[in-house]
Design a binder for these strands. Structure first.
Lengths: 238, 238
DNA sequence: CGGTACATTGAGAGATATCAACAGGCGTGG
DNA sequence: CCACGCCTGTTGATATCTCTCAATGTACCG
């Protein structure tokens, strides 16, 4: 939870039209004129591994569009217990909140690049753009649906099902960005996975090991290879 | 899960302006002219106890504004395990979904009155109304935030904390509608509570009993009285 | 090469689930 | 009006999954 020396790039940023995550992001709903307008509002910012982009209870000052890297989004209980409510990937939009304060923290897993918008300016920008508001709705509703899926996982699934579901879900999300692959990179730590699945780090580790013994997966440094994707999918569906 | 004989009211419905849940609902964002327009789109519908309003995987045909009663919203796993993702109260808006099918089921806990809108007509109605879209956003984001809170509960809290958090949360929601009270009506069954908290019915029952033995609550038929609200709140905050 | 952080493994404890019995309320029907 | 059955909720005994605590192993980095 280091505080970032905010590294703003020199003003010659890549134009929005060429943005690598545009079609995955909010901005997919914008036309060329709007993109050019938006260009003046966004600033690219870098964060190093484990830096906190914003923290629970902090005032919300910005919206964020993740360009590169992975982030963990989490809530802390007063006694330190942590629940990761999601991982953010390029294209994900952060900072929507009902209140004036962030309801969760977000920090970088590995180096991260973010397109940051001043809250007020962005609010003014979208204010009367119905097509953009509909797009934001779509994203919010999709996230809500994912959250509900995750509730089922947390409330009703066994450790093995949790781990399998996580692997499949993560593989599919990465697949949507970079195409399908049998080897699933896991940039986050075992502790992160545990806090995402409502387990302890030991249970996550044991479950991986069990799946490996069963010849279902192969544990590699920084990734997992799905030897028998169908088996993993079956566990995840069950 | 009976199928409802849809009981449409005679066409003289109460006008939207006089709607009892208007200020809590989506419609709070509408002016008088828009309300009159909306009046033609909504139909009041009644459902009896345990009737299903819509089911997971069903095509979405309508939006729903809950007027009276309580509903349970839940997802089922193939083997029948159930996770209740939320309870709906008057003013709650249902039917927003990213896909063309419902991602969860909704049925009535006790008699329910709903204001139903045809999906297409409602979509047309909101299409260009930025203020209404912003209001929908606000509702969606608030729900997402609640969902994240619930993830923390499901993933990281003990049975006792879960039950206490549920009691406080439910009390506060009811309080917002009908003013504060020390006795919290629980229209849902123990099984519903269990499926909401990711517990079994027995654990819920035992936890209630324990809290009663500790003189923290009083178990009444159909409700719980908070003898020591501060203790319950402390458990919920922990 | 040593140190540190992260991951794995093992043994044992504990919380919650499971299985089973019982109690109470309510509606039905005699 | 009472008896019966059914449904919901409570309680008890036991099982089991996951957690906790502790040790060991491994990779990365100065």
């Amino acid at each position: 939870m280091k505080i970032s020396l905010v590294a703003v790039e020199p003003n010659e940023q890549q134009p929005c039209v060429d943005c690598s995550v545009r079609q995955f992001s909010l901005c997919a709903a914008l036309d060329r004129a709007e993109l050019r307008e938006l260009e003046h509002l966004g600033r690219h910012v870098h964060f190093a591994t484990c830096e906190t982009v914003f923290a629970q209870e902090e005032m919300t000052t910005s919206f964020y569009n993740l360009l590169e890297g992975v982030m963990r989004l989490y809530k802390l209980l007063p006694d330190g217990r942590r629940q990761i409510v999601g991982f953010a990937l390029p294209g994900d939009f952060l900072g929507m909140t009902a209140s004036a304060r962030h309801s969760f923290s977000a920090d970088a897993i590995g180096p991260v690049t973010i397109c940051r918008f001043s809250r007020a300016a962005f609010a003014r920008f979208i204010e009367d753009k119905a097509h953009l508001l509909r797009r934001i709705n779509e994203l919010a509703v999709r996230e809500l649906s994912q959250a509900q899926d995750h509730m089922v996982l947390l409330g009703r699934r066994s450790a093995e099902e949790k781990v399998a579901t996580f692997l499949i879900g993560w593989r599919d999300r990465l697949g949507r960005l970079s195409g399908p692959a049998k080897t699933v990179p896991l940039p986050m730590s075992r502790q992160d996975i545990a806090d995402y699945l409502g387990l302890t780090i030991e249970t996550v580790s044991r479950t991986f090991t069990k799946l490996e013994r069963d010849r279902v997966i192969d544990i590699l440094p920084g990734s997992i290879s799905l030897l028998d994707p169908a088996r993993v999918e079956a566990l995840a569906a069950a």
